[in-house]
Structure formats: structure tokens, C-alpha cells
Amino acid sequence: MSDTDTETNSGTSSARNSGTNRGSRTARGRRGMRSRRTRAILAGGLVLGIGAAVTLAAWNDSEFATGTFSAGRFNLVGSTNGTTFTDHATAGAAAPLTFSVPAAAMSPGSVTYAPFAVQLDATTTNSAIVTVSAGGTTGTVTQLTYELLQTTTFGCASATTGTDLVPAGTALTAVPGTPNFPLAAGTGGAAGAPVFLCFKVTAGAGLVQGQTGSATWQFQAASQ
């Protein structure tokens, strides 16, 4: 074999070996990439598997609360005899006070008396503060003054004493300040304890013959 042939064979062999080596490296590279992808997919699968396990292992619990709310009841009633209490809810339906001296026959210097009582009825669920105010007048009420007392028993006369809600000498058209008193609600389905009142009306020296008029008072209860 000539030297030329030997060199040719050697070159051919080297080329084949070089190609073979490159092919082997390429194959190994492909296998390595597939292996890394497989590991990444497996790792991803493991992460997903762990996440699913955590979700399945979660515990949940709830509590609920509810409330029911109902309004109470409130009603103030009055009495002119201390035993029969009824509604007198408007000025037009005011309770007519019964005076000891006929209010239609007053003369200068005369004094007349009338009792009244208020209470919270049996349906009422809340205690109250009752405020007294002037409800208005009609006709002529000049030369007439009054006093309003809170008393311990029902009744009203010249000797009756008590707590002054409106001081003596107040014009029949006025209620000075904001006189008030507490009123308790009843218990066990009963009406509340009543508060007793006494009106004392005095005619002045200048009372004119034949004059006539009327005055109305309002007792306004506010629940507490």
C-alpha cells in the first residue's frame, strides 16, 4: 500500500471517528435534555401533588348568630275619679275636671279644686317621664290663676298639700318651665302605679261678671 493510500485511509478513518464522536455527543445531549425535562415534569408533578394534598387536608367550620327584635308598647291614661283610667289623647277629647266649687259660678276670691291622676296602662313595657305643658285656652280666662300639686293620694281640697309642679298664682294660660315627674310601668301584666295630681284655681279680685273660658293642660309621657 502506498503512502498516499495510507494517508487517505487514515483521513477517512479520522473523519468517521470524528463524526461518530459528534453523533455520540449529540445523542448524549438529547438524552440529557430529556432527562432534565423529565425531572422538571416530575418535580412539577410533585409540587402539584403536594398542593392537592394540602387542599384536601384543610378544615373548615362556621358559626351563625341571629337576633329577633320587637317593639314594646306605650300608653298613658288618665282618670278624674282615681279608679277608671281611659285615653284622652287629644285636646278635643280632654278629660273634664270635676271642681269642688262649680266652675260656672265663681266669684272674686273663690278657690275651686279638682283631682286628676295618670298612669301607664297594662300593655306598657317602659317607664316614663311625664312633662306638663299648657294645652291652650278658649274664651276669657283673665283674673284666674292656679296651682298644680303632685300628691300622695287621690283627692284635692283646700288642705291638700304635695309637691309643687306649678306654683300658686300662675296664670291659667301658662306653665312655667318644664315641670315633670316619673311614672313607672307595671309588672306581671298589671298597670303601673298612678301619680295623683291636684289643681287649685283661684279667682282674682277683678273677675268680670259673666266671663267664661276654659283651659287645657297636656301631660306628655316620654318612654325611658
Rank of each mutant, 00 (worst) to 15 (best):
E63S: 15
E63H: 14
F64T: 15
A65C: 01
G67V: 11
T68D: 13
F69C: 00
F69T: 11
A71H: 03
A71E: 11
N75R: 14
L76G: 03
V77F: 09
G78C: 02
T80Y: 03
T80E: 14
G82H: 02
G82M: 02
T83R: 06
T83K: 06
F85I: 04
F85P: 01
D87P: 00
D87R: 14
H88P: 00
H88G: 01
A89T: 14
P96I: 02
F99K: 05
V101Y: 02
A104T: 15
A104P: 04
A104V: 09
M106S: 03
M106D: 03
S107M: 08
V111C: 00
V111K: 06
Y113L: 01
P115G: 03
D121K: 12
D121N: 15
T124I: 02
T125C: 10
S127C: 09
S127G: 14
A128I: 06
V130I: 06
V130N: 10
V132R: 09
S133K: 09
A134C: 08
G136D: 07
G136L: 10
T137P: 11
G139S: 12
G139W: 13
T142N: 15
T142K: 07
L144R: 14
L144M: 15
E147S: 14
L148G: 07
L149Y: 05
Q150W: 11
T151A: 09
T153S: 15
T160W: 00
T160P: 00
T161Q: 14
T161I: 12
G162L: 10
G162K: 12
L165D: 01
L165V: 06
A168L: 05
A168T: 07
L172E: 01
V175G: 09
V175H: 07
V175L: 05
P176Q: 09
G177R: 13
N180K: 15
F181G: 04
P182G: 09
P182V: 05
L183H: 05
A184G: 15
G186V: 02
G186N: 11
G186T: 07
T187E: 11
T187A: 15
G188E: 09
G188I: 00
